[in-house]
């Protein structure tokens, strides 16, 4: 079951042209996504998490391109797709996306119903009455009560949480296999956020979805993810099962990310914070991109890019610290506390 790879990214490089300067946003990323899992991609702004998933549905900005590498979806290399027609076979039908802002992803001039129906008609053989029936079903599925009445209302008559439900309904309208959620709960209040996360878990089972979840909120990750990929400077620096990342993290950047959370800080004491500036992706990066900000960086970190070291069959990290010859480096105290929860090989 676990071997059932639905989407496979191989040595993907994505570049952008910004006023004549070339920026490498994704640096040789390889990633297997398994059918039916929920994978969270975490990282700070500019780490490339949104760019990576946008390349799965051909939504890179016009100045960006896939420079090399493959994206294999159900046996086809979709990174070769050029025309909009090609992408329409994938986008929505196979891989759908929910964006962050529920306010801007709906058209304020059209009724909720017509916006869902539009998608249903575009992607299926259903017509008018049947399409309407299907749309109302979808609204009920995402937990909107009095769906028939709500069908004729406009976006401004919906609250933020309700709008996000509608956006999710549109995304699942054509039974996609993969649902990408790009910070879907960031703009919402905590109580609403919890409801949306529950909804996604329910839909995942009902519609047999594979979910890719992009967020910088590690609390949300803990809630929803089976596996977590940590991105830094256009690269996946650590990936593993959720428990492996939270309770047995190995990469210094993952440590830094977790330690800077106020939840793990002692009151009145300073929060752990990462020194220095994020890596400049216009430059060629030699060695480990995180090295200049890592107090425990080794000499080799500045010279050779670390390979992945396996910690378990499901857990690997790109850091020289895991090399046999590396000196023993202890994680910060807050991480040690977290590691106490680790039960090891299970």
């Amino acid at each position: 079951m676990k071997d059932d790879v639905i989407l496979s990214v191989k040595d993907l490089v994505i570049k952008f042209n910004l006023r004549g300067r070339i920026l490498t946003a994704i640096r040789e990323v390889s990633l297997d996504i398994f059918r039916g899992e929920s994978l969270a991609i975490v990282g700070e702004s500019g780490s490339g998490k949104s760019v990576l998933v946008k390349s799965f549905i051909g939504l890179l900005d016009e100045n960006g391109w896939i420079d090399s590498g493959k994206i294999i979806y159900k046996g086809t290399d979709i990174s070769q797709y050029k025309s909009e027609q090609d992408w329409l076979k994938i986008r929505g039908r196979e891989i759908a996306m929910v964006f962050q802002e529920p306010m801007t992803s709906l058209n304020p001039l059209k009724t909720i119903g017509s916006q869902i129906k539009e998608t249903v008609i575009l992607h299926s053989r259903l017509r008018s009455k049947a399409a309407k029936r299907k749309s109302i079903e979808l609204l009920e599925d995402v937990g909107i009560s009095q769906a028939e009445k709500r069908f004729t209302q406009y976006p401004h008559e919906f609250s933020g949480g309700m709008r996000q439900r509608v956006v999710i309904a549109i995304a699942i309208a054509c039974n996609p296999s993969i649902l990408i959620c790009d910070e879907p709960t960031t703009a919402l209040d905590v109580t609403i956020q919890a409801q949306i996360l529950d909804l996604l878990k329910y839909l995942k089972v009902k519609y047999n979805l594979t979910i890719i979840f992009i967020t910088h909120d590690l609390g949300v990750v803990a809630n929803i993810a089976d596996r977590v990929a940590v991105m830094y400077a256009g690269d996946i620096v650590e990936i593993g099962k959720s428990e492996e990342i939270f309770y047995n993290s190995q990469h210094p950047y993952t440590w830094a990310l977790l330690s800077s959370l106020p939840q793990f800080a002692e009151k009145g004491k300073f929060l752990y914070s990462i020194d220095g500036m994020p890596t400049n992706l216009f430059n060629d990066i030699e060695g480990d991109a995180f090295a200049p900000r890592n107090k425990n960086a080794l000499k080799i970190d500045y010279v050779i890019r670390p390979p992945y070291f396996s910690i378990s069959p499901t857990h690997k990290a790109r850091t020289w610290l895991l090399d046999k010859r590396a000196p023993k480096v202890h994680p910060p105290n807050s991480i040690k506390e977290l590691h106490k929860n680790w039960r090891g090989n299970h």
Partner: peptide
């Protein structure tokens, strides 16, 4: 109580077993 119960905790074991209260 409802508000506090809804805060996501960065700890998968606790987070996956938590109960959310509704006000």
């Amino acid at each position: 109580r409802a508000l506090l119960s809804a805060i996501p905790v960065p700890d998968p074991r606790r987070e996956k077993n938590k109960k959310i209260e509704i006000y």
